[in-house]
Design a protein around this nucleic acid. Structure first.
Lengths: 311, 311
DNA sequence: ACCGAACCGAAAATATCTTTCAAGGGTGAC
DNA sequence: GTCACCCTTGAAAGATATTTTCGGTTCGGT
């Protein structure tokens, strides 16, 4: 067993002080050392520099065959490049490949087009939604958010209005609030929403969720609640739109550019959900004493509905 | 379980097209698969996820000793994570380490705590959801996704099953599919779901959405559809769970760590929505001729419900 | 043409990875 | 409570991959 050179290599004080394994500057090293290489070693080095990913997938024998040389030569080349052996060169190669891969990522600024392969669709959608989240977080007014949280935490009851995609967000918020013991209802039927809204009074909270800020069916119930003295909150992507007229607190969601294949509903939903999550966590913090057990309890209650997994 | 698996060097082209070795989605994969792992395997997975660079420098024996397990367990873990063997896991690990190295890592790793100021809550939630999106995108099997898209695009009708938070995701998908002219229904009532499921036949599609993969109320209708010959799709965070038994295609959502103030439902919802969006866009691409006008038409139809905004 | 030196690859030697197998431990059935 | 079964686990055998050795070959110099 030779094993001279294992991981811990910081004891580099020796006079001959060889270079530590290069991390990513491999191509450069190849160029530097190429002149001092023999012909067959150059072939190996060339292959390695040309296709790190491909070579990383090969064994010594494979790479030897590919370059028309022998295993010994491959190992010699690895040594010359500063690695203890081929194994370590291969590891570095894998790292290099990964770096190149990730470096090639910022190509996803383009819109999704009809003939994008499915993998690109995934990458672009994920990227867009990440962008939306960042924008929303950056643009959210924490003072307004805090005020809304306070109102919710102390509310007798809470009504949430939303239609269409925003209706799902409204339901999501409602589900969450219910889980921590608050009284909350989501309304997507405009008539019922108004009917319920007029029951609200000071100390209650009404929340309207609408991307455009101009959805009549959502504005009307909020207005009714507003006029009854309830605390009103608007979650909208248009801070100057009609809905804000009847809102004590306005929470702004972000709008990223939309395209034909990526309707606005998609990014507004992401944005709205983040806002809603913030509201929820904020309220859970304020009412922690009551919320924690309630959360645990609702979790318990659901356990029996799950089939034990086969593993 | 008989452990039949040939090393198979770069054999990535097989017809059965199982998951290709994950490039950088390793941490996500660990979290996803951790629940279905045995204790010792979890120890290995933990070590690997915690210190990719360090583990990449170790041999099987070394890692086994470090984690207090045996070589066999290390290899088993590597297999479970989707690699042919430890050698390949090690390679991926080296890649991951390199990426982490290059990508500066000032990540917000702390949990949300009860006394975090509201601004921190926003930042942390946004960050967590971004992370979830990245993990999901990285871990999504595009082959399965493509297959699911094809099935959807050609379906006579589509049923979507989801309960609780997943029910909202189911509705979201349904809304979208309806907008591009497909026939889709979301079911959250278990009885009605089964009643409808038995109406399905070959060529139809049934989609079950469940984070745990063990929700009886969702599994049953999927099973009914499966037995009727419909194409079945499972969107779940647990690729080995019961629901996958009746699923022709499994789409894996990612699981990020949860905490008391951030229930699993939150990140699973984000992840599920991304998957659902991918399905939608994929289908919209395939049926572009019909989808584009349908999208435009539904937009038109809603316009009059919006009050023209002031300003 | 001869000599020497460096280069190169086949095969042996070694290290590493993979598989097999049997013991230990927990769980559900009876 | 006891038993049987299956799952989990690590030790060691078996298979691969890597490193080293060693002798043949080529090329330049004399």
């Amino acid at each position: 067993m030779k094993e001279i050179f294992r991981p811990r290599e910081n004891g580099n004080g020796g006079g001959s002080g060889v270079a530590p394994p290069a991390p990513a500057a491999l191509a450069a090293k190849v160029r530097t050392l190429a002149p001092s290489m023999t012909r067959s070693m150059q072939r190996v080095a060339e292959a390695v520099a040309g296709d790190p990913a491909g070579c990383a997938a090969l064994t010594v024998t494979g790479l030897a065959k590919l370059t028309g040389t022998s295993e010994a030569t491959v190992v010699r080349t690895a040594r010359l490049l500063g690695y203890p052996g081929y194994r370590d060169l291969r590891l570095a190669l894998a790292g290099l490949a990964a770096q190149q891969q990730s470096g090639r990522a910022p190509t996803i600024t383009t819109d999704i087009s009809v003939d994008d392969p499915i993998a690109d669709v995934v990458a672009k959608l994920a990227h867009d939604e990440q962008q939306t989240l960042a924008d929303t977080a950056a643009g959210l007014d924490t003072a307004q958010l805090g005020a809304a949280v306070s109102a919710l935490a102390g509310a007798r009851r809470t009504d949430v209005y939303g239609i269409g995609a925003s209706g799902l967000v409204a339901q999501d918020l409602t589900q969450k609030l219910l889980r921590i013991g608050l009284i909350a209802h989501a309304h997507s039927d405009p008539h019922l929403a108004v009917t319920n809204a007029v029951q609200l009074r000071a100390g209650d909270v009404a929340i309207a969720i609408t991307h455009s800020g101009a959805t009549e069916d959502v504005i009307e119930p909020l207005r009714a609640a507003f006029e009854r003295g309830a605390t009103t909150v608007a979650v909208t992507g248009r801070p100057g739109s009609s809905v804000t007229r009847y809102a004590d607190h306005v929470l702004t969601t972000s709008t990223s550019r939309e395209s034909e294949l990526r309707p606005a509903a998609m990014s507004s939903r992401t944005s709205q959900l983040l806002v809603v999550d913030c509201l929820f966590v904020g309220v859970a913090q304020r009412t922690y004493e009551a919320a924690a057990p309630a959360l645990a309890a609702s979790y318990e209650a659901l356990a029996h509905r799950h089939r034990s997994s086969p593993r």
